[in-house]
Amino acid sequence: MNLTDYKDVYVFAEQREGKIQNVALELLGKARELADANQEKVVAMLLGKHVRENAQELIAAGADEVLVVDHDLLAEYLTEPYTQAITQIIKERKPSIMLIGATTIGRDLGPRVSARNVTGLTADATKLEISDDEAHEFRMTRPAFGGNLMATILCKDHRPQMSTVRPGVMQKLPADPDRKGTVVDFKVDFDEKKISRVKIVKTVKEEKTVADISQAKVLVSGGRGVGSKEGFAKLETLAKELGGEVASSRAMVDAGVMEQSRQVGQTGKTVRPSLYLACGISGAIQHLAGMEESDLIIAINKDKFAPIFSVADLGIVGDLHKIVPLLTERLKSLQK
């Protein structure tokens, strides 16, 4: 493998039902920075059926070029056709770096692609950078051991250097509708026999509206200290007052009080809101892993030794059941 043949930063532009996923836009923002450090291009890979019209959105978010693979076999995500398409792109275009969102789709696709192309894949990086020494090395830093340890990973002799990144970790650029870029139709020769081994019988969206807490500017988050659905109703009113969403620790998800889509942490979502208000959350390392990058963290807990206070900008030792309603009232009166 001649490493100098490989260049540019490629981003998997995940779409669902024709809607570009936020994580793809976030990755384009990061890719822009990485590509600029090496004077390279940002290329978005847009796979699907009737998705060409989404190309401009990707350019506005930082892409220089959009490769569109439009095909019936790509209408709904399946491992094999998507892997074949990305593999053909790698073979023909030789990307240096490839970023994929760590969604249920990206985490299914990434390892399959890395194994087919015999290259390395860093899981769920939280920091991506080009070293500022001569080597211009691509360094991917990620948490492991349940968030207890950070590791910086290199992929020295194989290309592309792949990484998945969880939604909410990188920041998208403000969309620039005037940005110029090229849109290229990319043809893929599919091996349909391999594809036919898996069939989608049905795809079910659960009725409940799935809040995307990773996009919220304000999160009022509750843990076991909140205790019940009634307790969360109080947080809900406070969150409304602040224009935010309610989030939860895993304890309350496991207890069936909150839905999994609102869970923050290692096995939930990574969030980075302007305000994270933690109510009755002890601050286990697996929870901190998902929220400690928030701009402002305020914690209310009745135990002054709760570990959540070690990451809070403002810690209040007290009873959330008293403080939360009072705070809501106070904010309401300020509005007037």
């Binding site: 390395g120 860093t122 360094r139 910086t152 990973i153 290199l154 020295k156 400690e292």
Partner: peptide, 13 residues
């Protein structure tokens, strides 16, 4: 293909 270049405990702010 990957190697751990360095590992360190998470820095809490």
């Amino acid at each position: 293909p990957t190697s751990v270049y360095k590992a360190f405990p998470k820095q809490l702010k």
